[in-house]
């Protein structure tokens, strides 16, 4: 028996918005510790890793490990039937072929119940090595979304450079080019870009903006985002989900042909 209660539907809604464009179907792996999901996009270029800790949810129980195969678009549609503030319970019996959703209104005067068919999903689980990154940049998630959106109007790829001066995003296209630089600034003045950079080595890497655009769908989950980079390894983009967990994205770089 698996059952997780969220005080508000909004966290689940936002998690689905942050994953559904990248993966169609995914196994939600539920254990005594919590809920984990790891899935690659169909082209095997990016990966999303979600972790929600059971002990930080309103209530949580999971006696036996269970893998729930979920069509993310269907789950998104069902969650749209909940108001943001509805208390939300998701439940599945061991060996169940459905997941049950219960939405309770704030005043507890309305209860909705939906069942969603589960799927058998063959997914390839990747082992992600522990990595010491050369550069980790913490910045506003809104600012990161803005930069990705702006540079997508110029080109398909972004070159990210991190050095002791700060971080620079650059794009080139047929019609022109653009760069956005943010200075590392430890002061917390109003209006400053307010980024922190933890740097051991300068790095310069290229990435497809198309995937970064998918990642920025997680911005409503957190005011901040962290970008971790090392030469010749995938970028890691992390959004914390309050005290409950995180959503991490990995993106393989564009490399010299």
């Amino acid at each position: 028996m698996f059952e997780a209660t969220f005080n508000q539907a909004s966290i689940l809604k936002q998690v689905l918005e942050a994953t559904k464009d990248l993966v169609n179907d995914a196994n939600w792996d539920c254990s005594a510790e919590g809920i984990a999901l790891q899935a690659m996009d169909s082209s095997h270029v990016s990966l999303v890793s979600l972790s929600l800790r059971g002990d930080e949810l309103a209530s949580y129980r999971c006696e036996n490990q269970i893998s729930l195969g979920i069509n993310m678009n269907t789950m998104t549609k069902i969650l749209k039937c909940a108001e943001n503030n509805d208390r939300t319970i998701i439940r599945a019996d061991d060996d169940a072929d459905v997941m049950v959703f219960v939405f309770e209104s704030e005043g507890r005067d309305k209860t909705s119940k939906y069942e969603m068919k589960l799927m058998d999903i063959d997914s390839e689980h990747l082992g992600i090595p522990e990595q010491e990154y050369s550069a980790t940049v913490q910045m506003s998630s809104k600012e990161f979304s803005r930069i990705v959106r702006d540079l997508s109007t110029i080109g398909e790829n972004v070159e990210i450079t991190v050095d002791k001066e700060g971080i620079t995003f650059g794009a080139k296209g047929e019609s022109g080019s653009g760069t956005v630089s943010l200075k590392s600034n430890p002061s917390v003045d109003e209006g400053s870009s307010n980024i922190t950079i933890d740097l051991t080595d300068s790095v310069k890497l290229n990435f497809a903006l198309r995937y970064l655009t998918f990642f920025t769908k997680a911005a409503p989950l957190s005011d901040n985002v962290s970008l971790s980079l090392s030469a010749d390894v995938p970028l890691m983009v992390e959004y914390a989900i309050g005290d409950v967990g995180f959503i991490r994205y990995y993106l393989a770089p564009k490399i010299d042909d």
């Binding site: 690659m40 082209s43 095997h44 270029v45 990016s46 990966l47 390839e124 689980h125 990747l126 082992g127 992600i128 090595p129 790829n157 290229n206 497809a208 390894v233 995938p234 990995y250 393989a252 770089p253 564009k254 490399i255 010299d256 042909d257």
Partner: peptide, 14 residues
């Protein structure tokens, strides 16, 4: 020209 790397080049199958 740069080409898109795949994740399999970096992460092994678990």
């Amino acid at each position: 020209a740069k080409k898109q790397a795949k994740l399999f080049s970096f992460f092994g199958k678990a």
